[in-house]
Design a protein around this nucleic acid. Sequence first.
DNA 1: CGCCAACTTGATGGCTGTCAAGTCAGGTGG
DNA 2: CCACCTGACTTGACAGCCATCAAGTTGGCG
Lengths: 236, 236
Amino acid sequence: MPQPDTLSQTACAHCSFNALCRFSLSAEEMLHLEPLVSHQKTLKKGDFLYRAGSAFQSIYAIRAGFFKTDILLEDGRTQVTGFQMEGDILGLDGIAANLHSCNAVALENSEVCIIPYSGIERISQKIYSLQHQLNQVMSREIVEDRHTMLLLGTMRAEERLAAFLVNLSKRFSERGFSSCEFHLKMTREEIGSFLGLKLETVSRAFSRFQEEGWICVQNKHIKINNLKKLESIVQA
Amino acid sequence: MPQPDTLSQTACAHCSFNALCRFSLSAEEMLHLEPLVSHQKTLKKGDFLYRAGSAFQSIYAIRAGFFKTDILLEDGRTQVTGFQMEGDILGLDGIAANLHSCNAVALENSEVCIIPYSGIERISQKIYSLQHQLNQVMSREIVEDRHTMLLLGTMRAEERLAAFLVNLSKRFSERGFSSCEFHLKMTREEIGSFLGLKLETVSRAFSRFQEEGWICVQNKHIKINNLKKLESIVQA
DNA sequence: CGCCAACTTGATGGCTGTCAAGTCAGGTGG
DNA sequence: CCACCTGACTTGACAGCCATCAAGTTGGCG
């Protein structure tokens, strides 16, 4: 099992599979699970956790750090499909074809738990809740992707950026970090790719939000002064 | 079990859960599954299969017909998140929160198999492959949504429509229908909503494709004369 | 200190949205 | 059977948002 150090505790407490690692399980169930999540991996900023087209074997639970996933078109265009932080699960896209369908890249030094997929399927036969939890995680991912489609299909630039900031704020908050002050791990270009905008447009929207006094931007450091206002922009 | 009429055979042969209904299972396994998929439902054009916010109990396998799923914003903006045809599964978005997160609407008279979710989880404990199949279906949905995000985030109007037509052609073909001639069940507005475009833009793109001789459009009837060309537009 | 990537800001243009008018198809009722 | 009506669609003119191109600034890192 992971050593109960500070790092793993903060990470696991909010992990989508926390029931799997340390909570809600009997001693006997724990015995089944031990070998499943005992392996971990550390990545440096810029490292690939996996690449599109590579063989799928495991899914990953982020213990610490920050990732992006993206897909490429032949002509070089890319789409960032999501940003993942501690507690999030990576790699579920690989189940469909036994191949990873996107790249997963660490945006800062990170640490993940490696969870062999075959092990999950096997143990799910014994531990009912694990299967349900996996289904929920995947379903949640579908719901979130649909929301991103709504953003890309119907919103304008400033609405998209506001939605992005509100979403980040909420996720940081859920993990015990400040909801109004945080560091962006990604570049303007990566934000733009995720939001279907060019980096210049992202930069201009940041500037406008700052002019209005809703946020303070200093490079990658963000301070949100008026979260309500940002939320109202999204709904507008 | 469903009566082995022509309708159900054509539908089930391509169903994502065909292994569940009639193939690859022992007689004993079949006994477990019988009660699961024995209920069906017919819908008329315009009927809701389920609505966003309603309680989640079952997923649905389309036996015949055509559906759209969409989500709404408070201000009335909507995003069509997908079109589903026979063999496709509807309702997986509801697992996350035990509530459906989108609307599912029949675009023509349709028929679905009702598959209670609790039953799936229960039987998955006995039939290993069912769980894996469900995971694959959900993973495939994630991969497809990511592809739609790529479309919405990086492609221009004509590229989007070309990708849409190529995708439809492929899916009709997989189901034994013509890959180059078919009827659109949805309106221009619904196509536009799915592609993040206005209906006028969709109409103009259709007209241009026809001027170029790549397709013939007559109302909702589509004939593809040059599929290769459409495919090349997507990649361009 | 110097270099380079990341970022900001300005000017311009183009794609697509918006508004508007007209056409077409399908269904209803006389 | 036909007039009518409504929703869906097409086409044109124009405008606005964002992409593109360009130049300059900042910050991080060797």
